[in-house]
Write a protein that binds this DNA or RNA. Sequence first.
DNA 1: ATCGGTATTTCGGTATGCACAATCGGCCCG
DNA 2: CGGGCCGATTGTGCATACCGAAATACCGAT
Lengths: 239, 239
Amino acid sequence: MNARPAAAQLSRQIYAQLKADISAFRFKPGDPLQELELAARYGGSRTPVREALTRLLDEGLVVRSGRGYAVTIFAPEDVRHLYEIREALEKMAVRLAIERASDGELALLTAEMEGHRPVIERDDIAAFNELDSAFHISIARLSANPLLEQEMQRLHDKVKIVRNRELSRHQGSFNAMADHRRILGAMLRRDVATAEAEMRYHVRSVVALYYGYQEPRPLNPTLDLPLPDWQPPLPGPPS
Amino acid sequence: MNARPAAAQLSRQIYAQLKADISAFRFKPGDPLQELELAARYGGSRTPVREALTRLLDEGLVVRSGRGYAVTIFAPEDVRHLYEIREALEKMAVRLAIERASDGELALLTAEMEGHRPVIERDDIAAFNELDSAFHISIARLSANPLLEQEMQRLHDKVKIVRNRELSRHQGSFNAMADHRRILGAMLRRDVATAEAEMRYHVRSVVALYYGYQEPRPLNPTLDLPLPDWQPPLPGPPS
DNA sequence: ATCGGTATTTCGGTATGCACAATCGGCCCG
DNA sequence: CGGGCCGATTGTGCATACCGAAATACCGAT
């Protein structure tokens, strides 16, 4: 039961597991996290659990709550702050991706996005939540900036938590995929300005949805993408 | 020697101290960091030192080196990656600061910047290195986004390390202060586009300096700032 | 029954001990 | 003389014990 390869390190395992459990809402925002309880849950002593908690604390997924720890609750203010950072980083990511990604890489990204379609159609909100973040992280990967990709990853660890609450209506997923298509279309045309604008709109849409106030409006006219023209089916009447 | 107020926590103290020692180059990039040695240095056991190292590792100031730890060495590639993120965040910060800071707050920022002048004139590179980062963090504070301010803080923890090496010539400080004046001028005029452009130029200048290749050129014509017109003294001949 | 004070329990912060992995040096063999 | 094997050393990973503080529960007095 000891550490040999750095990958199989218990503290890293616990860190990854705990983060996954938080992202997947097996721990919900506000849930208390006790060292001993987590140690029992994941099998280990308090030491590696503490290390995991320290990291999660540093990354903002966990906060101090009284004498203990708890899963972070994102207030509307926090969401706005988070998404301002997100807007900055996503715009940079898409710009760099356009400048550096090969046509082949963009084709793979297109395929990835098309893979979201069946998930949306089967109304698997949780799965699409993951895929949505994965899509944005893929763009960051194409920016050929590992640090940016890492920051994007951490950002989306929080984004996934936030999105879960207010995005339980499918419309969110449909809108998101439509946004993704426009972003990708601009990327394929190597149109940095439009891609940045679309990304900005995409990010701000979520905040608008979350806050409830209206968003300026989309942006540019050109929507003739070299993509199979698929439109989201009409959303059913609100049940 | 035990924990009562959360602020006086030994592990936090050690974290802050170690980070300060790294930022101030009392530990240089590449220096090995041993748990026991650090425990002796800061007075404590390995446990709180481990916690501090875990956080620094997560933040990228420390890396694993073989079986141990070492202060991160930033390769030219890393610097480019770091500064791409910096460009994105600094532009967002200056934009939000313009939108949200009061005239009084901008006046305080002006005063802060003017305080840099004597430091530059007395050639205190290390001190200006700190003040330069502090200036940018002040802008982030005016963005009224605590998360962005925190990210800026972490970014500059790394920036300070990077800057130390290639910026040992004063010209860097002079140029930096001139850049700061132009950024601040645009902020006082509430000119978002120019401020972002100046910030972008400022950030890219450092990368250019670091990499050695030329930078596009400054940007806009308007340089009539409502600031005391002070020009950096002619730098002495390269000794 | 309620309030206040105290005892108890709980939980995190720190120190320490043990085990294992990696590294480096020396020694033996080719 | 050089290279590979092996052991001692070093330093981290994990577990556990101890301490003190804070929350809680209990109990007695009013």
